[in-house]
């Protein structure tokens, strides 16, 4: 009985803490619906009337719809690239115990240790050589490069648990190694593909620095970039900035609401490296 009371007390305490903790996010949503006057006069109060004026202003001024589409295209492209190249690369890496394959696996993992900022300056040069500066394709490829270590780590770990007999049996049946991979193994990899898709889409959607580096033309900009340049033009005009921030995080919050346990599990599994 005492233990239960203690737990209720603890639960209440944690809820108070949790609400204070998440208050900044709630206040951002709250602010987005307020008029400019209310924001400066009473920053803590709830809006007196729900005002969507800020949102429509943000949509037209910051060209949010275009930015949304751009972010969507870039995220989809990068994730597709990651799933295809990552799953393929993991196959031989999980099947061979040779020194060469171990070395390549370690090479891929090394990417998580190196600070990518080291490469920013010459990455831009490489982009120019391949003519992918100021193109969505460029941002997709670079995002893919930055997320490959994680993707290959997850896929290889999973494939090591799949029995070798399965692949061998298929090849005895006359299936080529390529067909075996795409029609037998790839479907089995669904759960890990789901994890890869969730984590890397979060990473790519949230990216700021890669698109800052590669996309200078305003019609190509991602949601984060357009919020960034929007803030630059409207310093301290929070009534206009906040709706665009809310729009930038809305898709992620919705995704999180429905897939929270797989997102949390996936991100924890991506961190736990051998």
């Amino acid at each position: 009985m005492m233990a239960r009371n203690r737990n209720y007390l603890l639960e209440t305490l944690l809820w108070v803490l949790g609400l204070i903790y998440i208050y900044p996010v709630l206040s951002m949503i709250n602010t987005a619906f307020k008029s400019a006057e209310e924001i400066s006069l009473s920053p803590l109060a709830l809006p007196s009337a729900l005002s969507f004026a800020n949102f429509s202003h943000a949509f037209s001024e910051a060209k949010l719809l275009l930015a949304f589409t751009n972010s969507g295209i870039i995220t989809a492209g990068s994730v597709l690239l990651l799933v295809l190249t990552g799953a393929m690369a993991a196959f031989p890496l999980s099947r061979s115990d040779s020194k060469g394959s171990k070395a390549i696996y370690l090479l891929f993992l090394a990417g998580t240790m190196l600070p990518f900022q080291m490469g920013m300056i010459s990455l831009y040069q490489v982009g120019k050589v391949f003519h992918i500066v100021n193109s969505h394709l460029g941002v997709m490829i670079v995002n893919a490069a930055f997320n490959l270590s994680l993707t290959i780590f997850l896929y290889t770990g999973f494939l090591r648990t799949v029995s070798r007999e399965l692949v061998d049996a298929a090849s005895i049946d006359g299936c080529s190694i390529y067909r075996t991979f795409w029609s037998i193994l790839f479907p089995i990899m669904k759960p890990v593909t789901a994890t890869v898709v969730i984590i890397t889409s979060l990473n790519v959607w949230n990216d700021f620095i890669i698109s800052l580096l590669f996309l200078q033309k305003s019609h190509l900009q991602t949601i984060n970039l357009s919020v960034y340049s929007f803030v630059g033009q409207n310093t301290n005009d929070w009534g206009v900035i906040f709706p665009s921030l809310v729009m930038a995080m809305l898709p992620i919050l919705i995704l999180y609401f429905f897939l929270q346990s797989s997102i949390i599990k996936g991100m924890a599994s991506g961190a736990v490296k051998e």
Partner: peptide, 8 residues
């Protein structure tokens, strides 16, 4: 992809 756009 990895070597050209990250490692190099």
């Amino acid at each position: 992809i990895y070597i050209t756009f990250l490692l190099y």
